[in-house]
């Protein structure tokens, strides 16, 4: 699956310019199954990028990387399971460590927020979107996060309010903002549509 092209939007909506090798620098790479293809493409462009790379694959096995051989390869079943490991790698990263994130907006948002919290500068984090355009949405009312949102509006998995999907994005939290769609007229909800790229 190729890199996703998103339509132009507001300034807070993240854009993902794609992975470009920074050479044989220390690196932390996190990808899901669709994103793993971006890592193999990256390695094909410059094999040395894997020489000092820790790769964390979320929700898929090592087979997704084909014959690419990073210095260390970790597998985690989901974000929650990956978080302690990724946090540890980020907190012990040396100056100049490069971050490569590839996959869904949920994965990129989640891990980039961890990276910013660990003090990583924005220009040392590269991102490439692959696969599902599902969004990681935070309910502005109850603050609960609903993963893998594909429709607008959607139902908050925590408080049950019907929320519309904004393009406003918080890098600190790694989430888009969801706001009650029928706040002024309870029960009057627009027709549900699929989210577009």
């Amino acid at each position: 699956m190729p890199k996703t092209e998103f339509s132009p939007s507001i300034d807070s909506r993240p854009t993902y310019s794609g992975l470009v090798s920074q050479g044989a620098a220390p690196a932390i790479m996190v990808a899901d199954e669709a994103g793993a293809q971006a890592l193999t493409d990256l390695a094909a462009s410059d094999a040395s990028v894997m020489d000092h790379a820790h790769v964390v694959l979320v929700g898929c096995g090592a087979a997704a990387l084909g014959d690419v051989k990073p210095v260390a390869l970790h597998e985690a079943p989901d974000f929650d399971a990956a978080t302690p490991l990724v946090t540890q790698l980020l907190n012990t990263a040396r100056m100049g460590t490069q971050i490569y994130l590839a996959g869904s907006e949920g994965l990129i948002g989640h891990v980039s927020a961890l990276a910013f919290a660990a003090g990583m500068p924005v220009d040392e984090i590269q991102m490439e979107h692959r696969g599902s355009i599902a969004r990681r949405m935070q309910c502005v009312h109850c603050k609960g996060i609903t993963e893998d949102v594909t429709t607008d509006p959607f139902t908050c998995a925590h408080c049950g309010l019907t929320l519309f999907v904004r393009d406003h994005f918080s890098r600190r939290l790694g989430v888009f903002q969801g706001v009650c769609v029928d706040a002024e007229t309870p029960g009057v909800v627009p027709e549900t549509v699929e989210i577009q790229a």
Partner: peptide
């Protein structure tokens, strides 16, 4: 507007939802 959501944003990011002005 939500401080909890916008804290940590830069000038263009926190103003992003304002129509036309940019």
């Amino acid at each position: 507007w939500s401080l909890d959501f916008d804290v940590g944003m830069n000038f263009f990011e926190w103003h992003a939802p304002v129509p036309k002005a940019r």
